[in-house]
């Protein structure tokens, strides 16, 4: 049925399916996201003293509530990675890239993020990376647009 068959004064409204609510991220995840807006990265001290980054509200082993936020660096080391040869539109980088676990300086656990690289030959476990911040930051993990290789490797002098 074409529009021609409809009266000109028909009322119209767009329909957007949406979930009109927000989640509160709480004192730990919220602190991490707030920090990202300011280009500051924080972890949290776990029950065994290790610094967990990104921070979690409860210890992953003992389930004890955690509260001591600890600032960590925006450089780190790749602890494992895989290559994404054909990124999907929703993923953080349009070009082929690495998906990597990154242990930020000062942290003892790893953060998942993408690493820009020319090819899988350029990436290695132990390679050093640095956060490349998004120009506009909204308080989410994609405030780090991607990590870039510094050209250094853990354990070697720059």
């Amino acid at each position: 049925m074409g529009d021609a068959a409809l009266p000109a004064d028909l009322l119209r409204a767009d329909l957007a399916i949406e979930y009109p609510f927000n989640r509160t991220t709480g004192p730990v995840i919220g602190a991490f996201f707030t920090g990202l807006r300011e280009r500051v990265l924080v972890g949290i001290r776990g029950a065994d003293g290790r610094v967990i980054c990104p921070p979690v509200e409860y210890d992953p082993v003992t389930s004890a509530p955690l509260t001591e936020l600890v600032k960590v660096g925006d450089e780190g080391t790749i602890t494992s990675w895989s290559w994404v040869p054909s990124p999907r539109a929703s993923q953080a980088l349009a070009e082929p890239h690495a998906l990597a676990m990154i242990r930020l300086d000062g942290a003892d656990t790893a953060l998942l993020h993408v690493v820009a690289a020319d090819g899988p030959e350029a990436v290695a476990t132990g390679a050093r990376v640095r956060a490349h911040w998004a120009d506009e930051r909204e308080g989410g993990v994609t405030d780090i647009a991607y990590f870039e290789l510094t050209g250094e490797h853990e354990g070697t002098e720059a």
Partner: peptide, 24 residues
């Protein structure tokens, strides 16, 4: 939904990370 989902990491690439750790 906070730290992982926004990156849309696909299941094969994630499994690759585990595979690399086992290889290393």
């Amino acid at each position: 939904p906070y730290y992982y989902q926004p990156l849309w990491p696909d299941a094969v690439a994630l499994a690759g990370i585990q595979a690399r750790q086992m290889l290393d």
